[in-house]
Computed example of a mutant assay.
Amino acid sequence: MSQINPYLNFNGNTEEAFNFYKSTFGGEFTALMRFGDSPGCEDMPEVEKNGIMHIALPIGGNVIMGTDVPKSMEQVTFGTNSSICVSVDSRSEADRVFNGLTPGGKVTMPMEDMFWGDYFGSFIDRFGVLWMVSYNPNETK
């Protein structure tokens, strides 16, 4: 396993929050994707298309990541506003971690290849913790 990083969910103010974090920690965003630029979001309300689908800010050897939760989805509350993102070194390690932690929980997105290049899945474990498992074959570890 290479990294475990926090993934934060916001009700429409991700960009504001991450600019605030950037003003303290410095650095540059390594990813910034908006809903309107993403496949499958064409029918999203116009007001939500400018929302942040994914943003990443390196801090030291780790990365803090985040997203806006569109108003058309269930809004986040304390306890559902963060996930643990596990970035692994292989597809087999991604499957091992995913399959090891999902029993008794609820899979929200099965492991599959994503349009952004990662092999990715997410779930809520049996203790209510939100997890994301990600393998990017193009990243050098």
Rank of each mutant, 00 (worst) to 15 (best):
V88K: 01
V86F: 13
G26A: 11
C41L: 09
K71T: 07
T77P: 04
P110K: 12
D113M: 12
Y7V: 11
P6T: 10
F120T: 00
V69M: 13
N13A: 12
S38G: 05
T80R: 14
G66M: 05
P39S: 07
A94M: 05
F20Q: 12
P137M: 14
K49C: 03
E112I: 08
E139T: 15
F18M: 04
L32V: 08
T80G: 15
G40M: 09
P70M: 05
G105K: 01
H54L: 07
V88D: 00
E112C: 11
D43E: 15
F78Q: 13
S134V: 08
P103N: 06
G27T: 03
S122K: 07
W131L: 02
L101F: 11
G128A: 09
V97K: 02
G121T: 05
V47W: 01
P39V: 12
Q75M: 13
Q3E: 14
G79W: 03
P6L: 09
V97F: 08
A17M: 09
N81V: 02
M111T: 01
S23K: 13
W116T: 03
N13F: 06
T80C: 11
G128S: 09
F35H: 05
A17L: 07
M1D: 09
E42T: 06
N5C: 14
S82Y: 05
S122P: 01
V107P: 00
M53N: 03
Y135P: 03
D68C: 09
E42P: 04
P70N: 06
G128H: 12
N99P: 03
M65Y: 01
P103E: 07
N50F: 08
N138W: 11
I55C: 01
E48P: 00
D68E: 10
N9S: 14
E46I: 07
E74W: 08
T67I: 06
G51I: 00
E48R: 03
V97G: 04
G104Y: 05
I64V: 15
E15A: 13
M1A: 14
G79V: 02
E93R: 09
M132L: 12
Y21V: 01
D89I: 07
K106A: 12
Y135T: 02
T24K: 14
N50Q: 14
G100S: 10
L57G: 00
G40D: 05
R91H: 11
L32E: 05
N99K: 13
N136T: 06
T24I: 15
R126K: 15
N81A: 12
S23L: 11
M109Q: 14
I55G: 00
I124K: 14
M109R: 09
P110V: 14
P58N: 06
W116H: 08
F127C: 08
F123K: 00
S87L: 03
A31V: 13
I84M: 11
V86S: 02
S83H: 07
P110W: 12
S83Q: 10
N13S: 10
M73K: 07
V129G: 03
C85S: 10
G36P: 00
K106Y: 02
P103M: 04
